[in-house]
Design a protein around this nucleic acid. Sequence first.
RNA 1: GGAGAGAUGGCCGAGCGGUCGAAGGCGGCGGUCUUGAAAACCGCAGUACCGGAAACGGUACCGGGGGUUCGAAUCCCUCUCUCUCCGCCA
Length: 426
Amino acid sequence: MFDPALLREDPAGVETRLRSRGIDPSTELAELTRLDAERRRLIPIVETLKRESNEASAQVAIARREGRDPTPLFQANKERAQRIKEHEAELDAIEARRQALLLTLPNLPHQSVPVGASSADNVEVRRWGTPRTFDFAPKPHWEIGGALGILDFERAARMSGARFSVLSGAGARLARALINFMLDVHTTEHGYREVEPPFLVNTAALTGTGNLPKFEQDLFRIAGDWDLYLIPTAEVPLTNLHREEILDGRQLPLKYTAYTPCFRSEAGSYGADVRGLIRQHQFDKVELVKITTAEQSYDELESLVRNAESILERLGLPYRTVVLCTGDMGFAAAKTYDIEVWLPSGNSYREISSCSNTEAFQARRAQIRYKPAGGGRNQFAHTLNGSGLAVGRTLIAILENYQQADGSVIIPEALRPYMGGLERIA
RNA sequence: GGAGAGAUGGCCGAGCGGUCGAAGGCGGCGGUCUUGAAAACCGCAGUACCGGAAACGGUACCGGGGGUUCGAAUCCCUCUCUCUCCGCCA
């Protein structure tokens, strides 16, 4: 959630920034303002009563110690206790409603984010590599993989349904090679700590990252008497690694990377990307997460994007990087860069990584704070996340960009050590 | 799945229902001493919210929630988690 204090200090600014996302928050903001006033009216009332109650109880103790009969003091206290109870019930209801509202509002876009309504308004900031020109008609990856016998949707559908796939042989090896390659680069060259987190997480964790309460329909929930969901991304467990902790500011930034499978229901995207590996219910991803300070977080976002881009450069895959406009950003993000890889089959760039600074949005939900290195009040950390990269889509990009006229696929050199020296899938 | 034990401040660990936000120890910070350091000694030190420009004042927090009571870290109920033993299992 954004800082609720902002709503008191600059309500118009908050509304403008939320509106730039293409939503109308006016009723929510009006209610929040009303609840805030109510809350601050009630708190002093309750606290004064409690103070009186505490003082009165102390009088009982004194009376008893001095051998006097304390029973005359009881009645007034009893009545006061009743009033406290009533006011507290009212306050609790207000606080619960306020929290619920705050959890449903998206983050405030950063000033540097271009204002826009849709992906058409995203702004390209970089482009690397030159798309290859083919002297034959390049095929889509599902045809290439099918012909090579390394990618199978039919058998996956029989056991799991649509949007699942089976990789086998060199295809499975390629996925594993990509995972290992990415993890090795990020851990040994970019300074991330490798983590193997749980793949099932609870409601609190998903609320921390912003997936809940609003987007439950995107998640797979475990049946039975469990409060568990399959993770939609390693961002969830990695960001929650330090939930409810107060970190030492001198140790920031913390940088984590993890390979995990990711599970998404893809509800509402029935018509989109039905063919191939692009949009699956289960996919592999190597994720990058940073926990840092307000001062550093935008520099850390730039370096995180560069860390992800370097994977594509080492694999020789052309890409471009865009900054998402206000209307295209995810719920938790204050600023997002998407990295898009070139896919010959679609003759277009396609998202392969999304790197966001959520500022304190997730930290406030997950209670991740730090003691500033220079002293002073505890601060909410800034959390960042990015794909580094989506393994399935990287595999697609390799199949399509490195396909040969005879149907074989050349393995990029950087991956060959991870493929037992294999140079070509044929 | 069965049986039992526990959850207190950064950590360890006390705590008869009434000056307990909580003894003591360790760790941390500041100081005295020292050429410097260590040791010793003295002092400061939790989090959130409300009010306040601030100093500061107030309230809450002893795993979560509820109850008993004038008053709960202490009593009762419940949930969660951790540990031990048995069974099962990669």
